[in-house]
Design a protein around this nucleic acid. Structure first.
Lengths: 209, 209
DNA sequence: CTTGATACGATATAACATAACATAATTGGA
DNA sequence: TCCAATTATGTTATGTTATATCGTATCAAG
């Protein structure tokens, strides 16, 4: 079996226990080194976030946690997530109001996310070329860059292979959002989506803004 | 006075009526051309979104609307915003749960946003270099790109000139977020922020991920 | 074994968003 | 013009996500 990558999508049949175990081990080491307290609760929340490569909502975590601890409540989860995010062990996906485990927690970073709209799985990139492009473009506007939120919807390799299309719509991906990446030509339209919304990014050279 | 740009931050003393008027005129023309109905309500919501260059929450809009129409309710606003977003006349800022007017609505696009954490103003970029970098990087992971969410926190030129720092923290920019862009050296830390969170993007060449 | 700091429990509420169904306005065709 | 279909809005209710606040427990250092 191929090694599980730090970036991009893991094989569909990868042994996910490796991911979880590795994440927990790294987290323990990182927290120890920093003198941060990875308590049972925090460790458990991290484990739950790592139960798959699909992002989990705070209330999903809470549902599970309630079965395990008397009196778990929203702040229980949010505080744990705050801690984990501050340590760079999880990332928040703004466009989904969800959380995913960080695939490379040793170095703090904002994260760049690929979100498959068909299967829901999320992969992390950390490509300096993207940060460079953003910094350069921002600099031309006189803007100094801090935190970046980069979340890219689309189709992961597995779903492309299987000819799957996007399922449902992410929250507030309002009517008119990016149409499925079909070879060409429309296939019916949501109600008032005349403009067609954000076009997809095609392989290169057809000049979209 | 300098012309008001489509991209980047307008001068602090620009005549904002021009922005609003222009946006409303363009919106009317676009909707007419597409056969979309820019009703009084939708037009008014667009005008409110354009009341400044700071993003407005749906409930901010609702507060104003309630003073003008009996029975305005959340769906009133969200439906109008859905329409406007479908037409590419406004963008949603995911990291703020807010909306801004689109500065270039003729062409549908995902939008790239610079968000000043000091004054709260937002500027739109539409730089193909950023989209190119994302597409290339995503392609290496076998991912086909659809909608992009690109939101960059930092300091706008005006706030940099005046030596302002970030004010407060955006929602869920969890403890440990990007530190203010000081010339050098820390200046105290939030509670368990040992890692320091996402580092800023410095002018180039100091190899951050 | 005390002190100060940090973490967690518990309750309440704020902020953001949508579901569902009724009514009204608009459009296009008979 | 009038009707029927469609689209837009009114209205009520509820779902979902996130925080505020304050009290108690646990921990690490001296």
């Amino acid at each position: 079996m191929k090694p599980i990558p730090n970036e991009g999508f893991p094989a569909e049949d990868h042994d996910h226990r490796h991911c979880t175990d590795r994440a927990l081990e790294r987290a323990a080491a990182i927290c120890k080194r920093r003198g941060a307290r990875l308590t049972d609760l925090r460790r458990r929340v991290l484990e739950l976030v790592w139960s798959g490569h699909k992002p989990l909502g705070a209330y999903d975590i809470l549902d599970t946690l309630r079965r395990e601890r008397r009196g778990a409540a929203p702040p229980t989860v949010y505080r744990a997530l705050d801690f984990l995010a501050a340590q760079g062990l999880v990332h928040r996906i703004e466009s989904l109001n969800c959380f995913v485990g960080c695939s490379d927690p040793e170095l703090p970073h904002s994260g760049q996310f690929l979100i498959c709209t068909s299967c829901g799985s999320v992969a992390e990139l950390n490509d300096v070329r993207i940060d460079d492009a953003i910094r350069d473009s921002a600099a031309e506007a006189g803007f100094t860059v801090g935190r970046r939120t980069i979340e890219v919807d689309g189709l992961c390799p597995h779903c492309q292979e299987q000819g799957r299309g996007p399922r449902g719509r992410p929250p507030h991906n309002i009517a008119g959002g990016t149409p499925p990446l079909s070879p060409r030509g429309p296939r019916g339209r949501p109600p008032h989506n005349i403009a067609g919304g954000t076009p997809p990014l095609s392989p290169r050279g057809d000049g979209d803004g």
